[in-house]
């Protein structure tokens, strides 16, 4: 073979290798996985996130929920108490809903009458309660990650969070890295 040809073949090969590596990366980036970032802590928005998550899990899509800011109220355990909080953290703790049963509606809250009405309607129409949705989520292996930075900002502590299988604490980098692998990413705020 002529020297020019050999070098051309070499170039082509290295180009093919680069493309192969790119394809591999792309294939890994569109997994059958759903990533949801939750920001809002309103009952209706947490419900929406859980319904979408359960629907995805029902069709074997891997689901990863990333709870941050106001949504963390939904993960507080009504019965647990955290010690050693400073004054501001205590105030936040008192002012924010303690657990998913205490969440407010983003519209028509009417000092707590709205959520009661919605819960009554949900029961009547056979919609699972939020409590039941979390149970189902745990059974289906839906992963929950708590944004540690916002948990600290809100003055919440690990000791007051619900018991949930595999509950973990991580940062935004974890969300981005996992969202990058997911075919679908949602942001609920």
């Amino acid at each position: 073979m002529q020297p020019e040809l050999t070098s051309e073949v070499k170039d082509l090969r290295s180009e093919i290798d680069t493309l192969k590596a790119k394809i591999e990366r792309l294939e890994g980036s569109r997994q059958d996985q759903l990533s949801i970032a939750l920001i809002a802590g309103d009952l209706d928005k947490i419900l929406a996130a859980m319904i979408i998550a359960l629907a995805a899990a029902a069709q074997d899509t891997k689901v990863k929920l990333f709870f941050s800011f106001w949504s963390l109220s939904a993960l507080r355990d009504r019965k647990k108490k955290a010690k050693g909080k400073d004054f501001i953290s205590k105030m936040f703790g008192i002012m924010l809903p303690k657990g998913k049963s205490k969440l407010k509606l983003s519209n028509m809250n009417m000092a707590g009458i709205g959520p009661l009405m919605i819960k009554g309607l949900m029961k009547k129409q056979g919609v699972m309660s939020l409590e039941k949705m979390f149970q189902e989520a745990a059974e289906l292996g839906i992963e929950i990650t708590i944004c540690e930075m916002s948990m600290n900002l809100m003055g919440f502590k690990k000791e007051e969070m619900i018991d949930y299988p595999g509950l973990r604490y991580a940062g935004a980098v974890t969300f981005i890295a996992e969202a990058n692998e997911s075919a679908t990413q949602l942001f609920i705020s």
Partner: peptide, 13 residues
């Protein structure tokens, strides 16, 4: 019949 979305899908699964 007693459950609404996404209940039926979960039961089917």
């Amino acid at each position: 019949r007693g459950t609404a979305c996404p209940g039926p899908l979960l039961e089917a699964k």
